[in-house]
């Protein structure tokens, strides 16, 4: 497959995953308006903007403490609107879909008509003002339905596209984005573990990571903050945990370049993917190591992205001659 097209597929998928995460966070947040105190709601907005690294409207992004006060006052809908429909906000749902679609458009020969149709149709409907009306009336339902469109896209992808290189790069993009965003979300909940006074509702975190039901299955609906945290980091079978993403990334790289992960010397990308997995499978699960673990995941994920690009996308031509 063309390196440029792999790049497009990878980003198509990353933007879509990011949009999925954003939608879920927004769904949780608008729900929180009916369930929680306004202080909790305001804290939730702060976590949301920090996790997604988006500057809130009018605010200096880097999260001064006063910001929480302004979130107390701001209308939740203004913020949700900004994160959903604002085209000038590159982190809004509409912008993310737009970027995803733009990348898909440049990889049209590798994706199926159904994938493109699903992506394009949803994008066009998100720009339709009638949908805005629905959002205004029932925001939580709106987010649920948009989320369903992403699941539909993934179903169409898994069932229609050949599970070859294109599929591998799409999957790689999805889990690379997932591990990075989820790490940020967890890191923004971390301080609350040590805060005795907090009345934080930890089920929100599980819902933000689409893991409420898996958690309840594994433990009980009794929510324990520390169990929530370690579950989302180390649990191997739930698709939204860090460990799950790390396994997927490592396996995906193995399919993309089998020799690079098997023959001496191992490709740098494969080594990092292995380290990432080892950290999440065998690494410390002690409370005092949590901050360090998250920081290390963040560092490795960034390094991995760079190495993937250096090896498979933007490699220097003279190292790759010739071969038919």
């Amino acid at each position: 497959m063309l390196a440029r097209v792999a790049d497009n597929l990878y980003w198509m998928s990353r933007y879509l995953e990011r949009s999925d995460q954003t939608i879920r966070l927004l769904g949780v947040q608008v729900r929180s308006v009916t369930d929680n105190t306004s202080a909790q709601v305001a804290a939730g907005w702060t976590r949301l903007f920090r996790s997604l690294k988006v500057a809130p409207p009018g605010g200096d992004p880097l999260y001064s403490e006063q910001l929480e006060d302004s979130f107390l006052l701001a209308d939740a809908y203004t913020l949700a609107d900004f994160m959903s429909f604002e085209r000038d906000n590159p982190g809004s749902m509409v912008s993310l879909w737009g970027m995803s679609r733009e990348n898909a458009r440049q990889a049209r020969q590798e994706i199926t008509q159904e994938m493109w149709g699903q992506l394009n149709r949803t994008y066009l409907s998100l720009r339709d003002t009638r949908l805005h009306f629905f959002w205004n009336k029932e925001p939580e339902n709106f987010y649920k339905e948009t989320s369903a469109q992403i699941y539909l896209f993934r179903g169409v992808t898994d069932n229609g596209l050949r599970h070859g290189l294109a599929w591998d790069f799409i999957r790689l993009g999805r889990f690379m984005e997932r591990i990075q965003v989820t790490t940020e979300i967890l890191d923004n909940y971390r301080p609350a573990l040590d805060d005795e006074d907090t009345d934080l509702d930890w089920s929100l975190l599980l819902r933000s990571c689409a893991s409420f039901e898996p958690y309840c299955r594994h433990y009980t609906p009794e929510i324990d903050p520390w169990k929530v945290m370690t579950f989302l980091i180390h649990e191997p079978e739930s698709p939204h945990t860090l460990r799950f993403a790390a396994e997927e990334i490592r396996n995906g790289l193995g399919r993309i370049d089998p020799a690079g992960g098997a023959r001496h010397p191992l490709q740098a990308a494969h080594r990092i993917a292995g380290q990432l997995r080892a950290l999440l499978v065998y690494g410390s699960q002690d409370r005092e190591d949590l901050a360090g673990t998250l920081a290390e995941v963040r560092r490795l994920a960034r390094g991995l992205h760079d190495e993937i690009y250096r090896r498979y996308i933007f490699y220097p031509a003279d190292q790759a001659l010739p071969g038919r």
Partner: peptide, 8 residues
């Protein structure tokens, strides 16, 4: 330029 190097 492919993901697996150059191809004629």
């Amino acid at each position: 330029r492919t993901t697996a190097g150059l191809r004629q």
